[in-house]
């Protein structure tokens, strides 16, 4: 059984799309360095040449605008940043140009640009290398935001994003890059519903995306031993947000946990979901919904602080125990490594 990692799946999607559309252009700092953007751009320059795949000056705002210009002139673009935080220098071009162009010129032309942003966690990423700002981007009409959790979704959604005539923000959590899946699951499905019920249960509904979906799956077994099962809904697309899958699940389970573990609480995707559900007529919950996020504090660097900053497995289990009214036997070994994705990981990047 062959397996493929999340970053290999991205590489595969990029390679295939570059072959499929000879006009597609790919750029960013690190696309052609020795590490190939976490392995995701391996072989691209060799295969497609340095005019279509290129390193850029450290000029985030201009390069975003240049991408908008190219995509207006028949060259769809994939632009990438190894940390989302650097992309904040490009907000004028993202918000005032990319997101608005189709609308403000009366639909005359559109901006098919995909912006890949990587979010860091742990190993002292600290206040300015760990921000996951999907709720900022989702706030802007004209942008789409996707956050795949698995290699197959990364592959599928990156292809969909590239073929989308609108700007799409594609957010990858750094801790997902080494996650593996069977190669045969990597297929392009154009019609696939974005938000999906990926695992069925009865005691409560869990809503998550990106790394938080992997975190939910990592406690599935402990819950099973404690005779608790749950519906797991993986959002995949943050905007547009499809609330219907969540609604259908809640009609059965009547209990909700939103694990928004890579976001601050204020105006988060989790609070948006709760707000939308609150306005629904037919949703009757037995217990108030649970929303788990990071605290309303910027990420600290010291490992002594991050231990308590990030959400631990046992915190989630304790909350679930209260939500479903059942005791859960906790083992110390259930505590996840809080500042590295796996025991093989050696920092810093």
């Amino acid at each position: 059984m062959t397996k493929i990692t999340y970053s290999q799946a991205i590489n595969k999607a990029l390679t295939e799309e570059m072959s499929r559309n000879k006009k597609l252009v790919c750029f960013g700092l690190g696309v052609n360095d020795s590490l190939n953007f976490f392995g995701t751009t391996k072989g691209l320059v060799k295969k497609f040449g340095s005019e279509r795949v290129f390193e850029t000056p450290t000029s985030e705002n201009a390069m975003t605008g240049i991408g908008v210009g190219m995509s207006l002139n028949n060259n769809p673009c994939v632009m990438m940043h190894q940390r989302l935080d650097f992309f904040l220098l490009a907000m004028d071009q993202l918000v005032n140009s990319a997101a608005k162009w189709h609308y403000m010129f009366g639909g005359k032309n559109s901006v098919p640009i995909t912006i890949r942003l990587v979010v860091g966690k742990g190993w002292g990423q600290g206040p300015t290398h760990s921000q996951s700002l999907q709720s900022w981007f989702a706030h802007i009409p004209g942008l789409k935001v996707v956050m795949p959790s698995f290699p197959s979704d990364a592959y599928n959604l990156l292809k969909k994003s590239i073929r989308d005539p609108n700007p799409v923000i594609f957010i990858e959590h750094r801790w997902l890059h080494n996650i593996e899946q069977e190669t045969k699951k990597i297929k392009y499905k154009n019609k696939q519903n974005l938000t999906e019920l990926i695992s069925k249960g009865k005691d409560f509904t869990a809503v998550s995306y990106s790394l938080s979906t992997i975190e939910m799956l990592s406690i599935k077994n402990v819950l099973k031993i404690n005779k608790i099962s749950f519906d797991l809904i993986d959002l995949k697309s943050i905007k547009p947000l499809d609330i219907s899958v969540i609604k259908n699940s809640l009609k059965r389970t009547k209990r909700l946990l939103v694990l928004d573990s890579i976001s601050h609480p204020f105006c988060s995707i989790g609070s948006e979901i709760l707000s939308q559900l609150y306005r629904e007529k037919n949703i009757k919950l037995i217990k108030p919904p649970l929303l788990k996020t990071l605290p309303d504090i910027p990420t600290p660097t010291s490992t002594f602080y991050t231990r308590d900053f990030y959400i631990k497995k046992n915190d989630i289990l304790n909350d679930i125990s209260k939500l479903v009214g059942k005791k859960i036997k906790l083992k110390n070994s259930d505590t996840i490594l809080h500042d590295v994705p796996d025991s093989n990981f050696k920092g810093p990047f």
Binding site: V25, E51, G65, I66, G69, M70, L72, N75, D92, N96
Partner: peptide
């Protein structure tokens, strides 16, 4: 291709359009 309101906003877009001409 357009005029925009934020000072210097259209400059990189023009440069991007030129990159496409080159391609």
């Amino acid at each position: 291709y357009g005029s925009t309101a934020i000072v210097s906003n259209s400059i990189p877009i023009g440069v991007g359009l030129a990159y496409s001409l080159k391609l």
